[in-house]
């Protein structure tokens, strides 16, 4: 619900004439990149001082440069692969603030901009150092302007997963990596050498990104049977996202090639369909991806089968039409007790 007031605020703050990239000209130029990076100077105040705009040369601050380039790579994935013009599909300026707070171990999306801390140097390096983090934060913007998924419980974990999925795709696309070549890590290099861990999360193998004496072990489940019920973290949105993350990884690697071409397209279609309920649960999201695959590639297509198999492998295949799983290469997994294996004949493709 808060999406609407934010949009209104933004419209008031950036009236069309001051926004030539989107709609100032008689013939609007779609897909024109428009970025703005600000520096909070160690304070927890937003937006901070504007330090770089489009057309200006790079400066000496690596955090500004990383944010700047990351915004560019993220815009490139969404525009060149999915024909989406910035987070609102109307050329909205991509805004970031770096150097937020002192030793601030976090990055977030405040509804208008991405905000990055420098890390404390003991556990975390600066948060702009991984492109996946920048792609993740901007995807929160895309989600806000589209399905606007409620940021708690299962819909919150899907919101998180979508940010991880497209954050990973931004990195894969920028590196020209296929699904088989990609590392499928979120926040690689964010931990200092003092931490035993390669990244914050792994889409390929949730729960294995780190295992450290101080931080403990990566708590993400990779299957619905490990779903974590908690009141922390808005209902474990950064924990349970491991389940849909792994489903996406399985679909992308089963299909092969570049993950953004097919699996990414199905997930993007799902996110932007306009029919995803704001409080959708895992099972509903799985069904929505299956429908999106049918719409684009056809019922019983290789893509449709891969989607069913991916969700089945994480315990969410119930109701997706398991009859076509056998053709896709990933063995069907017997639904677990908590697998919500509800048969929904209406969604069966045949």
């Amino acid at each position: 619900m808060r999406d609407i007031p934010i949009r209104d605020l933004r419209a008031a703050a950036h009236p069309s004439p001051a926004h030539p990239g989107a709609r100032g000209a008689a013939e609007p130029v779609r897909g024109r990149l428009d970025r703005a990076v600000s520096d909070a100077g160690g304070l927890e105040r937003l937006p901070g001082r504007l330090v770089r705009r489009e057309g200006q040369p790079p400066g000496a601050d690596p955090a500004v440069t990383e944010a700047w380039e990351g915004l560019g790579y993220t815009h490139s994935l969404f525009w060149n692969m999915f024909e989406r013009d910035s987070i609102d599909d109307q050329g909205l300026t991509l805004e970031a603030t770096v150097h937020y707070g002192r030793n601030y171990d976090n990055a977030f999306w405040d509804g208008e901009r991405m905000v990055f801390g420098d890390g404390d140097g003991q556990v975390f390096n600066r948060f702009t150092s991984s492109l996946t983090v920048i792609g993740h934060e901007l995807t929160h913007g895309v989600t806000q302007f589209t399905a606007n998924l409620a940021y708690e419980g299962q819909s919150g974990a899907i919101n998180e997963s979508l940010s991880d999925v497209f954050g990973s795709l931004v990195e894969q696309h920028s590196r020209g990596q296929s699904a088989a070549e990609a590392g499928w890590l979120i926040g690689e290099g964010l931990f200092t050498d003092q931490v035993q861990g390669v990244a914050l999360r792994s889409l390929k193998a949730p729960g294995t990104a780190y295992n450290d004496d101080v931080l403990g072990k990566d708590p993400q489940p990779a299957h619905l049977s490990g779903y974590i019920e908690t009141e922390d973290d808005n209902g474990g949105v950064h924990l349970n996202s491991g389940i849909p993350n792994r489903a996406f990884y399985l679909v992308a690697t089963a299909l092969g090639g570049n993950a953004w071409d097919t699996a990414g397209r199905i997930w993007f279609d799902t996110l932007t369909s306009g029919t995803l309920p704001r409080t959708v649960d895992f099972a509903g999201f799985a069904r929505a991806t299956s429908r999106a695959a049918v719409t684009r590639y056809g019922a019983g297509s290789r893509e449709h089968d891969a989607v069913i198999a991916g969700w089945s492998a994480v315990g969410l295949g119930g109701g997706l039409g398991a009859g076509s799983v056998a053709r896709s290469g990933i063995p069907p997994v017997r639904p677990s007790v908590s697998g919500r294996a509800v048969v929904d004949p209406g969604s069966h493709p045949e």
Binding site: M1, R2, N106, A107, F108, W109, D110, G111, H136, E137, H140, Y151, E152, G156, N159, E160, S163, E231, D232, D233, N234, H238
Partner: peptide, 24 residues
Amino acid sequence: TAPQPDRYVYRIRCAPHEVVLGEQ
């Protein structure tokens, strides 16, 4: 308050009180 993506959530307890606050 509506949660903001990736912000911290603080739970503060001092019996008999307990509150949950978004970072913002």
